[in-house]
C-alpha cells in the first residue's frame, strides 16, 4: 500500500449529487485518496462510478458536501477549477481525441495554448510522451487513421503532457477490441509504477489485481465496500459485492 501518513491528495466529504430532481447519483460519498495511490473503481452500470471521478475535475458538479483536490476545494470558482484541472489528467472511454488535429497537434495543443510553451519545446515533450506509449511513429497521422488501441494510447499521452499529479481513467478499455485492450493496459501498468496517483473505473479485474492498492465497489451511488485487491476478490464482505463478483468472474 502507499504510505498513509501523508495528507490525502483527494478528499470527498459527504459528497452528494443529483441529476435533475429525482436521480440521486452520489450519496454521502466519503473517500480519501493518498498521494501515489492506485485505485480501481468497479460496480454495475448506473452505480455512479463515472460520475464520482468526473466530479474530481469538475466535469460534473456536486451539490452537497466538500471535495478537495490537491489542497483546493472545488466550488463554482473558475480559478479553483482551472487550478485543479492543471493537476488532473483524464482518459475517456471514447478517447475524445480531436479528429481535425494530427496526433502531435493533439498533444501540443494544451502545452502551447495553456502552458504557453514555444512550439518546438512542446513538440519535443510530446514526442517523449508518444515514445512512452510506444506510438511515436504515428505522430503525424490523424486520429481516425489509427486503431482504437492506438487512439487510446494517444489519449493517455495527451493527458500525460500536462504532467498531472492525478490521472483519471473512465472505462479506458471498454470501447476496445479484446486484442487491443492489452496494449492499453500495458501502458497503464507501466505508468502505475511511476508514482502517479491513479483512479480507474474499469472491469478489467486482472488489471486491478496487478496494480491497484485499493478496489472500491460502488452500487446505487454509494461506496459499498473497499479493500485491497487480494482481500476484495478472495473474501468480499458484502452480499452485493459477492453477487457482482460472481457475475463478472463467473465465466
Amino acid at each position: 500500500m502507499a504510505e498513509t501518513q501523508s495528507s490525502p491528495i483527494i478528499t470527498f466529504d459527504k459528497v452528494n449529487k443529483w441529476y435533475g430532481n429525482n436521480f440521486h447519483v452520489l450519496r454521502d460519498i466519503d473517500l480519501s485518496v493518498a498521494k501515489g495511490e492506485r485505485i480501481v473503481i468497479c460496480g454495475p452500470s448506473g452505480s455512479g462510478k463515472s460520475t464520482l471521478i468526473r466530479c474530481i475535475n469538475r466535469l460534473e458538479e456536486h451539490q452537497q458536501g466538500h471535495l478537495i483536490v490537491d489542497g483546493v476545494e472545488l466550488t463554482d470558482d473558475i480559478k479553483a477549477i482551472d487550478q485543479v484541472r492543471k493537476e488532473v489528467g483524464m482518459v475517456f472511454q471514447q478517447f475524445n481525441l480531436f479528429p481535425h488535429l494530427t496526433v502531435l497537434e493533439n498533444l501540443t495543443l494544451s502545452p502551447m495554448w495553456v502552458g504557453k510553451l514555444p512550439k518546438k519545446e512542446a513538440e519535443e515533450k510530446a514526442m517523449i510522451q508518444l515514445k512512452r506509449v510506444r506510438i511515436a511513429e504515428q505522430a503525424n497521422k490523424y486520429p481516425l487513421q489509427l486503431s482504437g488501441g492506438q487512439q487510446q494510447r494517444v489519449a493517455i499521452a495527451r493527458a500525460l503532457c500536462l504532467k498531472p499529479k492525478i490521472m483519471l481513467f473512465d472505462e479506458p478499455t471498454s470501447a476496445l477490441d479484446p486484442e487491443m485492450i492489452k496494449e492499453v493496459l500495458d501502458v497503464m501498468i507501466a505508468m502505475a509504477s511511476e508514482g502517479i496517483t491513479m483512479l480507474c473505473v474499469t472491469h478489467e479485474m486482472g488489471f486491478a489485481k496487478a496494480v491497484a492498492d485499493r478496489v472500491i465497489f460502488m452500487d446505487q451511488g454509494q461506496i459499498v465496500e473497499q479493500n485491497n485487491p487480494h482481500d476484495f476478490f478472495n473474501n468480499p464482505q458484502s452480499e452485493r459485492s459477492k453477487d457482482f463478483l460472481s457475475k463478472i468472474l463467473g465465466h
Binding site: R85, M90, N96, L109, V114, R158
Partner: peptide, 21 residues
C-alpha cells in the same frame, strides 16, 4: 460531440480557446 468540449476542459482550455481551436 460533448466529449470534445469535455476533453478540451480537462486539458485546461478556456471557453474561447475551446471554441476557436
Amino acid at each position: 460531440p460533448k466529449g470534445q468540449v469535455e476533453a478540451a476542459a480537462t486539458l485546461g482550455l478556456s471557453y474561447w480557446q475551446t471554441q476557436r481551436k
